[in-house]
Amino acid sequence: MVSLAEPVPLIIAPSRGYWASVGQRLLRDKVTMVCVVILLTIILAAIFAPYLGLADPYRGSIIRRLRPIGTPGYLLGTDEQGRDMLARLIYGGRLSLFIGLLPVFNAFVIGSLLGITAGFVGGKVNAAIMRTSDVFLAFPSVLLAVAISGALGAGILNSIVSLTIVFVPPIARIAESVTTQVRSLDFVDAARASGASSWTIIRVHILNNVLGPIFVYATSLISVSMILGAGLSFLGLGTKPPEPEWGLMLNTLRTAIYVQPWIAALPGAMIFMVSIGFNLVSDGLRSAMDVRR
């Protein structure tokens, strides 16, 4: 085949895939990388807690209650029942992170499904989905979580269900607006003009461009989910004692705040660190993904 047009000059820069270039930018972002390392440490520690040679997080001792931070054998002291704080904080990460991540993941799947459907189909389907989600959005998220949890009864599973319900509407809203935006771009029309089915268009052209922004938004909800989950436990609607969980620990240590304020603050510090961490990673991800043009 003979080229019919004038030669076009070479581009020298090597071509990378989109996600490869996002990764590259993330690696160069120091703040995000520090947060990723801290979060990974906490998550891995929680997963591999039984192999870390920690004290039993459930075994208390009446005589060793509320030892201060730095006590030999109890690096971070002990709680109001004499249980090792370090062990409880690390074990507590298991439930707290579970309650923080799972509802967001569930809501990401359900909300994206609803939002992308609403955005792509439009019309009455859109109105039905979006108006329903507006009803949920009208309530403050704390109130909604407490109300649903209260109605379902206390328990980890129920608090996960209630948090999922809380996060579906905001994710659906973002998914709908991003989808509507992408759907109006010419490349979707071009795909329709080439005879592709709606399903193929969604799979190849919509999901590809829409899931990234929704994912970024969802990561920013992890911190909210952690705080709300901790709040539910604090109110007695989530985890039950003696399970180690940061929100619940914060509640039970409340009485010790005048005796050992630093120890009482530790679970709060964990919640704070992890939420800030997820928020900063979410920010970093957002700016790294903005490589267009």
Partner: peptide, 28 residues
């Protein structure tokens, strides 16, 4: 078939050039 004015908006930013061109024949 149609060619649009906005050369950027009419190509899927996540697809390689090759995949964008081959998309039509593939779905057929």
């Amino acid at each position: 078939q149609m060619v649009f004015q906005d050369s950027f908006a009419s190509l899927n930013p996540r697809l390689t050039i090759e995949d964008s061109i081959a998309f039509g024949p593939r779905v057929r």
